[in-house]
């Protein structure tokens, strides 16, 4: 019997007590810590964690002395689950497309394992840029299409909420360029994704079942499984910077 995940309320699980694949993400806090170290935020920095889910990152950030961390999520259920006992985290309900904060407020924005779940990634980035200070940094972690063979897979994975938004590295780079951001770092952490997937396979039984849990339409069929043969997923950490002065992008002859 399929029901909503008790933790995040958004994705499906096959048993009531189960947590969906999104509540424990690849690498846990390992990549978060690395990203934080690479960014070098000032001591009193304001940081936003977009799509904070069950609050692992906000918790981590809130422990840093002087740092002001704010967690935002669309799901009330997730926020309720994220709040610690006694309550000490700053949490806010909101959508990444319309962040209820004034422009130029944050030194940094974390968006972990969530960009591929949005349908309008460019708008998300533009909105995040709005609330960033000039020189502010975006930390993005996500799955990406590490490799892709041919075109047959596109139709089939569009069925999946998680995979439909997955992009190749080139596509992500184009997106970043279109938004006017500057890339400071790009690291591949596919090993962590694999480790996470190993755990999921043992938990759920097979890779196809893992992907089916990520699928909105519960695609269980052969075609779906076959299409997965045509792609290899990877996991990346990237850090981008909002330029100090806005430059208009170059035009081309088109």
């Amino acid at each position: 019997m399929i029901s909503d995940c008790a933790s995040c309320g958004l994705f499906s699980v096959t048993q009531d007590s189960e947590e969906c694949v999104h509540t424990n993400r690849p690498g846990g806090l390992i990549v978060t810590e690395r990203a934080f170290a690479l960014c070098g935020f000032p001591a009193q920095a304001h940081i936003l964690d977009v799509a904070c889910g069950t609050g692992a990152t906000v918790n981590y950030l809130a422990d840093k002395p002087g740092l002001k961390a704010l967690g935002m999520d669309r799901s009330g259920k997730a926020l309720a689950g994220a709040q610690s006992e006694p309550a000490r985290l700053n949490l806010l309900r909101g959508d990444v497309l319309r962040i209820p904060i004034a422009p130029g407020y944050f030194d940094g924005v974390f968006m972990e394992c969530a960009l591929s779940l949005t349908f309008e990634p460019l708008h998300c980035l533009v909105e995040i840029m709005r609330v960033l200070k000039p020189g502010g940094k975006i930390v993005l972690t996500d799955i990406y299409l590490r490799e892709v063979i041919g075109d047959n897979f596109k139709q089939v994975i569009s069925v999946s909420t998680c995979l439909a938004g997955a992009m190749t590295q080139e596509e992500v780079e184009n997106l970043i360029a279109a938004a006017g951001l500057r890339t400071l770092a790009w690291e591949d952490h596919t090993a962590l994704l694999k480790q996470w997937m190993v755990g999921q396979i043992f938990r759920l039984g097979s890779i196809t079942k893992v992907f089916c849990q990520l699928s909105a339409e519960k695609a269980q069929n052969e075609e779906y499984a076959q299409a997965l043969n045509h792609i290899r997923l990877g996991y990346y950490l990237a850090i981008f910077e909002k330029p100090l002065a806005l430059e208009t992008p170059e035009v081309n002859d088109g």
Binding site: R146, E147, V148, I149, G150, D188, N229, R232, G234
Partner: peptide, 21 residues
Amino acid sequence: KYVRDIYNNLSIIMHQRRGNK
């Protein structure tokens, strides 16, 4: 396309882009 798919971004992350099967 296949040649491109196999060797895309060869210079950046050499080891990750292989359509093994």
